[in-house]
Amino acid sequence: MSKYHLDYLAQLESEAIHIMREVAGQFERPALLFSGGKDSISLVHLALKAFRPGKFPFPLVHIDTGHNFPEALQFRDKLVEQIGEKLIVRKVEDTIREKNLTEQKGKFASRNALQTYTLLDLIEEFKFDALIGGARRDEEKARAKERIFSVRDEFGQWDPKLQRPELWNIYNGRIHKGENVRAFPISNWTELDIWNYIKSEKIALPSIYFAHEREVIRHEGQLVAVSEFIIPDSNDVVERRRVRYRTVGDMTCTAAVESSAYSIEDIISEIIATKTSERGETRIDDKVSEAAMEDRKKTGYF
């Protein structure tokens, strides 16, 4: 191979940086949606590569459902302090109170659907015209069809049948007032690509991605951590298991996997050997229907 050859991770990295710079160049008020998970942590790392020594041309925003893993929140605050960028936090709790929203009931009541309201309010409050997100096309079938620049109407809705053609590496971010674009720089990455990138770039992650002991109960075959949000009832058997998280979402809708992976290398070996997809194994909310994600996206969800 000639020395002018880019390795696949370098190609993906360069593509992601190119997309972020297009967002910075085309929009007046972009923001980066930061969840504290590995994908958005990788986005921050890519933004450092895209814009340093300058400041980020956008703040980080976090929609706080109130159901976070404490480790993820601590990590978020430490990271923001380290890079010296602005973080905006809006709480779903406040939206529920102000808008008199009805929360789901029951043990696995999730605020996953309600965070869309907080997100749309946030967009309106700051007049954001573009939101960078860490969604990947390999995650789910509806996402496999979404553009890298995905236009949402003023209600945040995605219309899968009216998507703009997206050709070559040319991104059309023109929108009408009130609309916004969701931009996905790591669309073409897979879960394994992300982990290989984290390894090669030595990106730090919250501790819950690595094996640790935790009290869990079983829910439809999945391991769910006992916490202030998930209180076992009399039928539940509380076990102490060695687990890690493959994705970091809310404590109410993210399941753990049994694991003894203490390092990134161990995690990569586990993922290569796994028989279950990331969302299938760890997301309680996607099992509801065949088109669960498509439906949520249509109403403004990421």
Partner: peptide
């Protein structure tokens, strides 16, 4: 087939991206 309409009609309407290595 990713979208509901595609599954219903049994056709591919839009470009879908798939990954393997």
């Amino acid at each position: 087939d990713g979208l509901r309409a595609e599954r219903e009609q049994g056709i591919t309407i839009d470009v879908a991206y798939k990954y393997f290595s």
